[in-house]
C-alpha cells in the first residue's frame, strides 16, 4: 500500500535549518532518515518544503479569488515536508513515520493514498 507521511514541525525546527550552530544536526538527522528510506527502497516520491512564511493561501468564493499571505495561523506545528512510501501495511508506515526527526519534536500524519480504482 502507498501512504503519505506528512511531517509537521514547530517553528523552532524551521529556524534550525539556517542557524549555523544547529543546521548541521538538523540536516544530518534528516539526511540519515531519508538515506535509510532510500536504502529500503520504499520512497515513491517526497519533498521538503520551504518555511511557512513562504506559503500562500488561496480561496475561491462566489467568483472572487481571495489570496492570503502565510500559512494557517495559530497552529503550533507547520507542514515541513512529506513522503509517499510503498510499504505492506499501516504498522510499517507507522514505523517509518516514527523514525523521522519530525516525530521527536512535532508530529507525523500517516494517510493511505487513495487507491486508483476509487477514481473511476
Amino acid at each position: 500500500m502507498q501512504y503519505m507521511i506528512v511531517f509537521r514541525e514547530p517553528m523552532s525546527e524551521f529556524e534550525k535549518r539556517e542557524d549555523p550552530s544547529q543546521m548541521g544536526d538538523y540536516w544530518g538527522a534528516w539526511g540519515a532518515y531519508i538515506g535509510a528510506m532510500r536504502e529500503a527502497g520504499i520512497i515513491v516520491k517526497g519533498d521538503g518544503l520551504l518555511p511557512p512564511a513562504t506559503a500562500t493561501i488561496v480561496r475561491q468564493r462566489e467568483g472572487a479569488r481571495l489570496i492570503e499571505d502565510g500559512p494557517f495561523p495559530d497552529v503550533k506545528e507547520q507542514l515541513g515536508g512529506y513522503f509517499v512510501i510503498e510499504v505492506p501495511d499501516l504498522d510499517a508506515a507507522i514505523d517509518w513515520a516514527g523514525r523521522s526527526p519530525a516525530a521527536l519534536v512535532g508530529s507525523v500524519e500517516v494517510r493511505p493514498v487513495m487507491p486508483a480504482d476509487m477514481l473511476l
Binding site: 500500500m1 501512504y3 505492506p88 501495511d89 499501516l90 504498522d91 508506515a93 493511505p112
Partner: peptide
Amino acid sequence: RAAGIPFRVP
C-alpha cells in the same frame, strides 16, 4: 480496510 491495518501478532 482503508488504512491497511495488518492482521498480525506484533
